[in-house]
Amino acid sequence: MADYFEGCPICLDQNMPASLAIDYQDLPRSLERVGDWQAYPDCPTLGEGNTPLVRMQGLANEIGVHALHLKNEGANPTGSHKDRMSRFVVQRALQSGAETVAAASSGNAGVSLAAYAAQAGLDCVIVTTPAMNPNWRRAIEMHGATLLAAQTPQRRWQVLADRVRAGDWYPATNFIVPAVGSNPFGVDGYRSLAFELFLQLGTYACTDIIVPTSRADLLWGIARGYCDLQKAGLIDELPRIHAVEPFARISNALAGADYRDHFEGHSALTSIGGSTVTYQALDAIASCGGSAVVVEDEPTYDDQRRLARRYGFYLELSSAAVLTGLRKLVAQGTVGRDARVVLVGTSSGGCEYRAFSQGIASVD
């Protein structure tokens, strides 16, 4: 069975790239064991998932919603939601007979893949840029992975593409333009977040979920998880799932722009940066009746400080953007006062630091 790293081959031939998804014909009728809902129910783990869901009623009252929870993905082994993806990428690589896994990353994804590759005994290569955060660099190197620096993000994808197509590396991330989602087995791992929210909230279901978004792997995984819960008869209504972005990309595509275009912008929210939109982003929002909202840097910095100093959560800036996004969604009436909201805090802020520009072997 092919893994289709470049998405649907028919769509690609028509220059309409779209991710492929794992389709589960028969779903369990209960969630006694989340693993039974996943492609690899019993593969090795570092303890990812089952992250805390923390109620923040004071913040809910401040913003003007009925209830508010934070899903703290910073509690995963390497500090981000990426661990849910890396576990299954590595397992699939092992099953495929690969010896080296690789990713184009300047942060969380690289650290996570390096950790899970180390556990599995696989070689790991992370293609990054010279401006990589030194804390992330040290974490990747501590896990024994190889770092290669390309001069631009676009060059990173080309390096990855060349080695994947040559059969040298098994990829975790996208490498084509227009973009598709990351490795389909890895993205499928994000469905578990929806299952956990269902179990943690019980009958007190959420109405809206706010997700920091770049190429929408997590957004799609959560949406697909909830659609599977509905398909299995465990829920009647889907929550609305909203994408938070640093400048208008998905928002423009939802308004009619061609999703294959480039949407340039500049922001300090680097973890959800990039100029591309994936079809899976549009599909996730459409399937759950959600929306996309653009946030600016300064109010996001303010919300990052507020979450840390008032509520005890130091989130990475791109993660703190979910609070800024919620404020805007409430202000514009998209999220109402009776809403029960979950903010997905994708990563902790412990690795945030100044840019680093020396010392990584160059591929150019």
Rank of each mutant, 00 (worst) to 15 (best):
R29N: 11
G47I: 04
D42C: 13
A18T: 13
D23N: 13
L27T: 02
G35M: 00
D26I: 09
D36F: 02
I22P: 04
E32M: 05
T51D: 09
A21W: 03
D23W: 07
A18G: 11
L27M: 06
G49Y: 01
L31T: 05
S30P: 07
Y24A: 09
Y40C: 15
P17W: 04
T45A: 12
N50Y: 14
G47E: 10
T45V: 14
D23R: 10
L27A: 05
L31I: 08
I22W: 01
P28H: 03
L27P: 03
E32D: 09
P17G: 04
Y24G: 04
D36G: 11
P28R: 05
P41K: 01
D42I: 05
Q38K: 13
L46G: 08
D23P: 08
Q25K: 14
P28E: 07
G35E: 08
Q38I: 14
L27H: 08
A39E: 12
I22A: 15
V34M: 11
G47T: 09
N50P: 14
S19H: 02
Q25T: 11
W37R: 02
T51M: 05
L46W: 00
E32I: 00
P28T: 01
S19P: 01
A18K: 09
G47H: 03
D23K: 14
L31N: 06
G49I: 00
T45H: 04
S19Q: 00
D23L: 11
S30M: 06
P44W: 00
D26R: 12
G35Y: 02
G47Q: 08
L31C: 07
Y24P: 01
Y40I: 06
V34Q: 10
V34F: 11
Q38F: 08
E32S: 08
L31Y: 04
P17Q: 09
L27Q: 07
L31P: 03
E32Q: 13
A18I: 02
V34Y: 12
Q38M: 15
R33D: 12
D23A: 11
R29M: 06
N50K: 11
L46V: 07
T51I: 05
I22H: 02
Q25Y: 07
R29G: 11
L46A: 12
P28G: 05
D36N: 12
C43W: 00
P17I: 01
V34T: 11
W37S: 05
S30N: 14
P28D: 09
Q25V: 08
E48H: 03
Q25C: 06
C43T: 12
A21Y: 01
D26T: 09
C43P: 07
D36S: 10
Y40V: 11
G49L: 04
S19D: 06
Q38N: 12
Y24K: 05
C43V: 12
E32G: 15
V34L: 15
L20T: 13
R33G: 08
R29Y: 06
Q38T: 13
G47Y: 01
E32P: 01
N50M: 13
P17K: 03
C43L: 15
E48Q: 14
N50R: 15
R33T: 13
V34I: 15
W37N: 05
P28N: 08
A18P: 04
L31G: 04
D36E: 15
A39I: 10
L27F: 07
V34D: 14
D42V: 13
N50T: 12
G35L: 01
A39M: 14
L46K: 03
